[in-house]
Simulated scan of single mutants.
Amino acid sequence: MRIVIAEDSALLRQGLEQLISMSGHEVVASVADAPGLVAAVAEHRPDVAVTDVRMPPHNTDDGLRAALEVTRTHPGVGILVLSQYVVRRAAADLMESATAGVGYLLKDRVSDVGELVTTLERVGSGGTVVDPEVVRRLLGSQRNRSALELLSPREREVLALMAQGRSNAAIGDHLFISEAAVAKNISGIFTKLDLPVTSGDNRRVLAVLAYLGI
């Protein structure tokens, strides 16, 4: 994959460049601010853009707002937010507007290089990966939980693991149940969240968005 990195910490930026390059992927640009991210994506058209949240020029949520601009102007580029901050509304907007893969990890919870590379590859292939702690914080902003309250405890567990980008097989291994049981729970989730089969929508993504309260 071809990757753009936006990170204002020079040490972390260089570390990410080395780790990603060592994993066999190509870092086509590495920038230190939000405008640089938008410009680098326009120039290089990467598979995935990795960005922090708080970056110059304003050091608030500039990185997330730049990521939102990327999803609007280059909808085929996956976005991986790698930060120590969760900005609820902007994060929810990103999840909702993304048409390619999207991920949100907290820096201090990335336990090894393999986890980061796996997340990059999932996002690059169109998947959605959300750190469980990000999920927890986003859930704190929810207002209407009526549909989700219909889910059984097991269905909630399955949906939480779906939000982390896990496959049916991985969910089954984590919960010690068969893939058939996972599929049955997912079918129940779709039914209770009123997500019928359509040609244009990915029900798995829509279920995760509902889980995040978007």
Rank of each mutant, 00 (worst) to 15 (best):
S97Y: 00
D62K: 09
A90Q: 09
V87R: 11
S23F: 06
R54M: 07
L37C: 12
E26M: 01
R72M: 12
S23G: 04
A98S: 15
V48C: 09
R89Y: 07
A39Y: 01
T60D: 15
M55D: 00
V41R: 06
M95E: 09
E17S: 02
G76I: 08
L16P: 02
V38Q: 09
A42D: 10
V50E: 02
G76L: 07
V27Q: 06
R72N: 10
D33A: 02
M95Y: 10
V28P: 06
T60S: 15
R13S: 13
V27N: 04
M55A: 03
G78Y: 04
R13Y: 00
A29G: 06
T60W: 11
L37K: 06
T99P: 03
A49W: 08
L68Q: 05
A40K: 01
A98L: 01
D47R: 12
D52M: 15
V38L: 09
E17C: 11
D93N: 12
I79H: 09
P56Q: 11
P56E: 01
A92N: 08
V70S: 11
A10D: 14
E26P: 07
L37F: 00
H44Q: 15
S23P: 05
Q84E: 05
G78P: 03
A100S: 11
A67D: 03
G101H: 07
S83Q: 02
V50K: 06
M22D: 06
Q14Y: 00
V86C: 10
H25T: 01
T73W: 08
D47S: 08
H58M: 09
H44E: 05
I79T: 10
A29S: 09
Q18F: 15
V81S: 04
Q14F: 03
T99Y: 02
T60M: 11
V70T: 11
E17M: 11
L68M: 09
R45E: 13
A40D: 04
R89D: 12
R45G: 14
A29D: 06
V86F: 05
A34D: 06
L68D: 13
T73Y: 07
L11A: 15
V28E: 02
S30V: 11
S23E: 12
T73I: 04
A39C: 00
P57A: 14
L94P: 03
H25Q: 15
L12Q: 14
N59K: 12
E69C: 14
V77A: 07
M95R: 10
V48R: 00
D61W: 01
S30D: 03
T51N: 08
Q18S: 08
M55I: 00
A90N: 08
V31I: 05
V28L: 00
S23N: 04
S21D: 14
S30W: 03
